[in-house]
Design a protein around this nucleic acid. Structure first.
Length: 849
RNA sequence: GCCCGCGUGGUGGAAUGGUAGACACAGGGGACUUAAAAUCCCCAGGCCGAUGAGGCCGUGCCGGUUCGAGUCCGGCCGCGGGUACCA
């Protein structure tokens, strides 16, 4: 009997697919196209079991679509620019380019044995000059269409290293290398005008029916459309009025002070001749730029001494404070505070002893605010105190609308719609990214490069021995001629955010070698991505930026109208986690151990070498530094690719995190061996016993239905559970050999998206036509799916007490009669009539006593 | 802080508002074997009961809607993701 020898089987079929060119995508108008895409990886150097899970899911979809008659595009590439390459160059020497390409080679080598249905001929890395040169062309087109501009924006500034830090390089407000306190500093940066598309990006979310609702909701909140009132406070000193924006104008009678951002022009103006204020502002500018850092920082305030008049009462004066929690980026950078109905304002007012004035009270419990702000939902009716628009009881929303109307009629304010979404800053003061193709000329200003000069390539001769951007200190790269006047000029040394690279790679895959960003025929044929698969961590930024880019590319003629939304369906998969094994070293610091160094006994873990007990931290995200990363190469070499694929799909629902266990991998291998053995037996048993076929074939058709449903709805774990069950049925079946042969072939087909090599092997063994990868997907016969009898559970007062077996089409009245004579019911009814009898045909019966 | 998720046996998990725990792992028992491996069969949420019949409890916690809630609603707790320069 042939054995399940994975190495041999897997390479054999991979060669067969390669010879047949099975996965090379070619335009073919006679078939419906299907574009499956998994978010491409960052080339960290090692393929991670999480990658295996992600790509296997995409592969299941791709192979299933092939089997259902689609012309499939399933490409792969690398998101290859970014900080880790520069960090590696700083830490261990070498060049980011060499590090990156060597990592890519390694990862491709690790990916190929998985037998993924990828069209490798389309592969590229975003750091290929052929790719980023086309990205520079896009940038120039965007510039021409007014989609890019420059303005000031704040960055994390390390005052010791004299360099800009990424948010992740700021730890507890300090630079990760220098340890210096980080400051927020302004730099001139390039921006994409994504906020011009706020309304459209928001509205179009409704059309993305095949996206997870949670992702649409997150994007909706991120875009953050709000309606509010904009108006100005007049200053008592005659200075320029202070314009504020508020979403709660109904609370104006509870105003306590006017607050402005530390970055507000008034603050900056006062700073010049007020050293005390300058000190305060310096304090405000400490720390990183993240929203989290700003929101959770201690609330600080400074009374500017400026006073303003309340718009509804000229005798009411309010102080103007500078407060560190007010963002210059949102609204007008100035607010009025209503402490009674905003916890942050209340905390601030209590700290600085400012008045707290109630504007409305709870209908049921009308007590004034003390240390907890009263913030009811906007739909809740409340009791208004002295409302200027004459309201008594009304909801917050009604009051907001009434207030805006009132202010507009009175002429002192106007209702405006604002968005939280800010323009996308793309400048990075780093080397390993796509150079921004512009030149700074003393006479012409900022001048775009000529397209014929693209790509503007990164210079290779750079060093990372000093902090900062090596492009800035490169002796010759910066120097160039102005494309406009020819005079000596300087290149832009900022490179692009790596989110730019990943915002259009899906379009580039449709024509990866073209000398323009895209080619109309290819983009028209292959776009949109029919199924996009990736991590939930990309729910907002990557997906929102890509949606913007698709629109911008359409405007510039690089994508068709239909691609304004480039991803028709989105699926977000969970992470693969693994326990962390930790002991404490002599210096009291944690020491992390690899899984293979640890023995598991009686639910406890011990070091193999010393026998010392190890602390187990369960289900942590795999991380190189914690030594809990499982290398899929080991699993593939021990058990084969099909086992790795089968295991990452089984058990956990794809959208949820999955815990990797070696035992699970071994069990998956055992199962696949069993399937191989069963198929081998059936293949050898051509003239075996003839038995009843009906039951086996019925099960087979139900399995076709259930597995298909699972694959179509990303319920791969459910499909696999059905395949286990059907394998058990087949193993025990006493059916005739022809029926068993048909069942085994169908089983191989249903497994083929998950375990393509084993399925090809079994298909060949049982005399299937051609390659299984080209075989049409089995179709369930409806007639075989209906059962003639059903089991109905009988509940009494909602608790299951008995069950009856009835013909599936038995009328409700007959079921009721049967139930009322059932012993479990009569004994409890004790002669009385039930209060209610609920019969859900084919499902359940509930008797209410 | 704010936004979005998730929470079910020893473990991973299943369950269109309708029999909670399918399927699998680990575990226990048995068959085969000189023995082991491999394979095959059986058991298995907790408690009470006798290992039976049967009963009670049980899907993070508290409350609600419903004939019926793991599922829907409100409030908490815990964990995870994002928070605009990690990708």
């Amino acid at each position: 009997m042939s054995r399940y020898t994975t190495a041999e089987i897997e390479s054999k079929w991979q060669e067969a697919w390669a010879r047949a060119g099975t996965f090379t995508a070619v335009r073919d108008e006679s078939k419906p196209k299907y574009y499956v895409l998994e978010m491409f990886p960052y080339p960290s150097g090692k393929l991670h079991i999480g990658h295996v899970r992600n790509y296997t899911m995409g592969d299941v979809v791709a192979r299933y679509k092939m089997a259902t008659g689609h012309n499939v595009l399933h490409p792969m590439g690398f998101d290859a620019f970014g900080m880790p390459a520069e960090n590696a160059a700083m830490a261990i020497g070498g060049h980011p380019k060499d590090w990156t390409y060597s990592n890519i080679d390694t990862m491709v080598e690790q990916m190929k044995p998985l037998g993924l249905s990828l069209d490798w001929s389309r592969m590229f890395a975003t750091c290929d000059p052929e790719y980023y040169g086309q990205q520079q062309a896009l940038f120039l087109d965007f510039l021409e269409k007014g989609l890019v501009y420059r303005k000031n924006a704040v960055v994390n500034w390390d005052p010791v290293d004299m360099t800009v830090l990424a948010n992740e390089q700021v730890e507890n407000g300090r630079g990760w290398r220098s340890g210096a306190l980080v400051e927020r500093r302004e730099l001139t940066q390039w921006f994409f005008r994504i906020s011009d598309y706020s309304e459209e990006l928001l509205d179009a979310l409704d059309t993305l029916e095949n996206w997870p609702a949670k992702v649409r909701l997150m994007q909706e909140n991120w875009i953050g459309k709000s309606r509010g009132l904009e108006f100005s406070f007049d200053r008592t000193d005659g200075g320029d009025p202070i314009t504020v924006y508020t979403t709660r104008p109904d609370t104006l009678m509870g105003a306590s002070f006017v607050g402005i951002s530390p970055d507000h022009p008034i603050a900056k103006q006062l700073e010049a001749d007020n050293p005390e204020l300058a000190g305060f502002l310096a304090e405000c500018r400490k720390g990183g730029t993240t929203e989290e850092a700003i929101e959770t920082a201690e609330k600080l305030g400074y009374d500017t001494g400026i006073r303003v008049k309340h718009p509804l009462d000229p005798n009411w004066e309010l102080p103007v404070w500078i407060a560190n929690f007010i963002l210059m980026d949102y609204g007008t950078g100035a607010i009025f505070a209503c402490p009674a109905h905003d916890q942050r304002d209340l905390d601030f007012c209590r700290k600085y002893d400012l008045p707290v004035i109630d504007t409305f009270l709870d209908l049921d419990d009308p007590k004034p605010v003390e240390n907890e702000a009263f913030v009811p939902p906007k739909e809740q009716k409340v009791k208004w105190i002295n409302h200027f628009a004459g309201l008594d009881t009304a909801t917050g929303q009604e009051a907001i609308n009434a207030t805006i109307d009132f202010a507009e009629k009175a002429g002192w304010g106007k209702g405006v719609t604002r968005f939280r979404l800010r323009d996308w800053g793309l400048s990075r003061q780093r080397y390993w990214g796509c150079p921004i193709p512009v030149v700074h000329c003393d006479t012409c200003g900022v001048v775009p490069e000529k397209k014929e000069n693209l790509p503007i390539e990164l210079p290779d001769d750079v060093t990372f021995d000093k902090p900062g951007n090596p492009l800035d200190r490169h002796p010759t790269w910066r120097d160039c001629a102005c494309p406009k006047c020819g005079a000596p000029a300087k290149r832009e040394t900022d490179t692009m955010d790596t989110f730019v690279d990943s915002s259009w790679y899906f379009a580039r895959f449709t024509a990866p070698r073209a000398t323009t960003p895209t080619v109309a025929e290819d983009a028209d044929y292959w776009m949109n991505v029919d199924q996009y698969i990736g991590g939930i961590e990309h729910a907002i930024l990557h997906l929102l930026y890509s949606r913007f880019f698709a629109r911008a590319m359409h405007i510039c003629g690089h994508l068709p109208e239909k691609s304004r939304e480039p991803f028709d369906a989105l699926f977000t998969q969970g992470m693969v986690t693994h326990a962390i094994y930790q002991t404490t070293g002599g210096n009291g610091r944690p020491v992390y151990h690899y899984p293979e160094e640890v023995d598991l006994r009686d639910g406890k873990a011990f070091l193999k070498e010393t026998g010392a007990q190890v602390t187990v931290i369960p289900s942590a995200k795999m991380s190189k530094s914690k030594n809990n990363v499982v290398d899929p190469v080991d699993i593939i070499s021990s058990y084969g690719a099909d086992t790795a694929r089968w295991f990452v799909l089984s058990d956990s629902p794809p959208e949820r995190d999955v815990e990797w266990t070696a035992a699970g991998a071994e069990a998956a291998y055992k199962h696949l061996s069993r399937v191989h053995r069963i198929a081998t037996e059936i293949a050898a048993d051509e003239d075996g016993p003839q038995g009843s076929d009906e039951a086996l074939l019925r099960e087979m058709h139900k399995t076709i239905r259930d597995v298909t449903l699972g694959v179509e709805s990303f319920g791969f774990n459910a499909s696999i559970a059905k395949l286990y069950a059907f394998t058990n049925t087949l193993a025990k079946s006493k059916s005739g050999s022809a029926a068993r042969r048909e069942a085994a072939k169908t089983l191989a087909q249903l497994m083929s998206p998950m375990t393509p090599h084993l399925s090809e092997e079994i298909w060949a063994m049982l005399g299937g036509d051609g390659l299984i990868v080209n075989a049409p997907w089995p179709v369930a016969d409806d007639a075989m799916l209906v059962d003639s009898t059903v089991t109905l559970p009988i509940q009494i007062n909602g608790k299951r007490r008995a069950e009856i077996s009835v013909p599936a089409d038995m009328p409700k009245e007959e079921v009721e009669k049967l139930v009322l004579t059932h012993e479990a019911v009569t004994s409890r009814l004790d002669g009385a009539q039930p209060r209610k009898l609920i019969v859900v045909p084919g499902r359940i019966v509930n008797v209410v006593l």
